[in-house]
Amino acid sequence: MIQLFHVTKRFGANVALQDISLRIRRGEFVFISGPSGAGKTTLLRLMFGAERPSEGQILIDGINLNRIRRVKLDMLRRRIGFVFQDFKLLNRKTVFQNVALASEVLGERQSITRKKAHQILRAVGLSSKEQAYPLQLSGGEQQRVAIARAMINNPLILFADEPTGNLDPEITKEIMILFRSINLRGTTVVIATHSRDLLENTDQRIVTLNRGQIVS
C-alpha cells in the first residue's frame, strides 16, 4: 500500500529524513515513533504528498508521488484520511458541516453527503453533537470529529500525527479503540507518536525514527 525507496528530505542545509526505505502493507496498523524532531511529521507529510522528497521515490497504492499531477494528487487525497494533533476543525462550522465537507468536495449529492455524515458521526458516538460547534466540545470529542471527517469517504489509508497529544489517558484509550476499529474495517492506519504509553501497550508494528533515520 505504501512504499518508500531511499527517501531523503532536506530543508535547505537541514536534513529532516535520510535514506528512508519502508513498506507498509494493505490493512496494516503501524506506529511511527521517535523523539520530537526525529522526522515523524515530515515522513507523514511526504506520504500524504504535502511535501516532495529531495531524493527517492514514494508509491501510494501504486501511484508514484514524484510524478503525480496536482489534480491527481487531489483525487488520491480523497482516498486518504489525515488526523492532526490540533484537530484542524473549522470553528465557524458545526460538527456536521465539518464532517460533511470532506464528502462535499467529491461533488456528491447533498442527500448522500447528509446520510454519510450522520452514519459516521453515529459510529464515533457524536450523534447528539451534530449541531454543536467545535469550541463547544471537549478535546476528545473534537478529535473524534476530526476522525469522522477523515473516515467519511471510507479511505484506504488513515494518517494520524500525534492524534492523542492533547488528550488525557482515558480519552486517549477511547481514541485508540476507534483507530483499531477503523483498521479492522480494512483501512491501513499509520500513527506518528512519541507517547510511550501508546507504544508500550501495543502489539502493532512500530517503526522508530531518530535524527531522520529508521533505527528499528
Binding site: 487531489d74 484542524k88 473549522l90 465537507l101
Partner: peptide, 14 residues
C-alpha cells in the same frame, strides 16, 4: 487560510 488548508487536506481541487 485554515479553511483553504482543510479543503486541500480532504482532497478539494484548486
Amino acid at each position: 487560510r485554515d479553511e483553504i488548508e482543510i479543503f486541500k487536506l480532504v482532497g478539494a481541487t484548486d
